[in-house]
């Protein structure tokens, strides 16, 4: 792997000279957090390898994806390449308010998190993706623990997705059951796939599940700002949460306030970094479907997409 980095370093030497000319980066390692989903790991490795090609030293540290913002604030971790609006927006904003962390850039990629079903579900409930059609098929999703109502398998409670509020507002015939981890969600989908059983779960894009199980998001009444706080916003005049989640949430890069000073060259590159949904899905697929190691996937991606990242370093 190190050999490949060296190769990369020579190809990027032009950019390196340019960058090194105007500022000197600290020789301390840049600490990049690693979370437990593959696109983030590959992206971290991609950015890390670019930094290494600039002559910086880089270290990867496995970190909890919520706790990371606190760590960045304190300078224990240098930056976070994937800040999801839906999942981590709250933690991020809270950390920004405390100080020590700031918003560096926003990816072109948009994130969406909402009710989702794999394609075989549509065969049993052809009216999908409309939410009213889903509501009529509620009986298909009945489980022993939800009685005569359909089950919606939500993400962990700490993701704060307000699914129950949505069910109440829209008067849906569903009960929200919260899985404790993403892995539990995948395990349920995988078990349902075996029997081609209809299932509706919480899911998000971009991630690897799209590549493994083709599926669609449920179409709720479109998100409007204030739908979650102001009853008058949305189709129902007297309810909050009478709408779906934003279909185009942001995906940001956040960094420690000390980074621009300590590693100016790396920081300049980080400001340019920008991925699209397709690129992120591809990175996730290289690991989750093709079974590559994240480091190797990052190297392969860099080799194949020089036209994408070269402009960032120059």
């Amino acid at each position: 792997m190190q050999r490949k980095v060296l190769l990369l370093a020579t190809t990027a030497s032009l950019g390196l000279c340019a960058a090194a000319a105007w500022a000197e980066d600290s020789s301390d390692p840049i600490i990049i957090p690693i979370h437990n989903w593959s696109s983030q790991i590959v992206m971290s490795n991609v950015i890390g390898q670019i930094f290494e090609s600039l002559g910086d030293s880089v270290e990867y540290v496995p970190t909890d994806s919520q706790a990371v913002y606190e760590a960045i604030r304190l300078g224990d971790v240098t930056f976070e390449p994937e800040v999801w609006e839906g999942a981590y927006g709250a933690s991020f904003t809270a950390a920004v308010e405390k100080g020590g962390i700031h918003d560096v850039a926003t990816h072109d990629a948009v994130t969406r998190e909402d009710w989702w079903y794999p394609m075989w579900t549509k065969e049993a409930c052809p009216g999908l993706p409309d939410w009213q059609a889903l509501n009529e098929c509620a009986a298909l999703f009945v489980t022993p623990e939800t009685g005569d109502k359909g089950r919606f398998l939500g993400g962990p409670v700490d993701w704060l997705k307000h699914d129950q509020e949505k069910v109440d507002a829209l008067g849906m015939n569903f009960v929200v059951v919260n899985a404790g981890s993403a892995a539990a969600l995948w395990a349920e989908i995988s078990a349902a796939e075996e029997q081609q059983k209809p299932i509706v779960v919480f899911n998000w894009t971009p991630n690897f599940a799209e590549a493994v199980w083709p599926g669609e998001f449920v179409e709720f009444p479109a998100w409007e700002a204030g739908c979650d706080t102001d009853p008058s916003v949305g189709p129902l005049p007297d309810k909050t949460y009478d709408c779906g989640n934003p279909a185009n949430g942001y995906l940001k890069i956040a960094a420690w306030d000390g980074m621009p000073e300590k590693w100016p060259a790396a920081y300049a590159v980080l400001q340019q970094v920008n991925f699209t949904n397709a690129q992120i899905a591809e990175m996730a697929k290289m690991v989750d479907v093709d079974g590559m190691e994240p480091e190797d996937a990052a190297t392969a991606w860099l080799e194949a997409n020089e036209d994408v990242w070269r402009p960032w370093v120059e």
Binding site: A67, S91, D158, N178, A179, G180, S181
Partner: peptide, 21 residues
């Protein structure tokens, strides 16, 4: 630990406390 399957007990709250430090 089984909070990672999905529970409504102390474990789930513990998980939340960890992620919000």
């Amino acid at each position: 630990i089984a909070a990672f399957i999905g529970t409504q007990d102390l474990g789930q709250e513990m998980q939340r406390a960890l992620s919000s430090t």
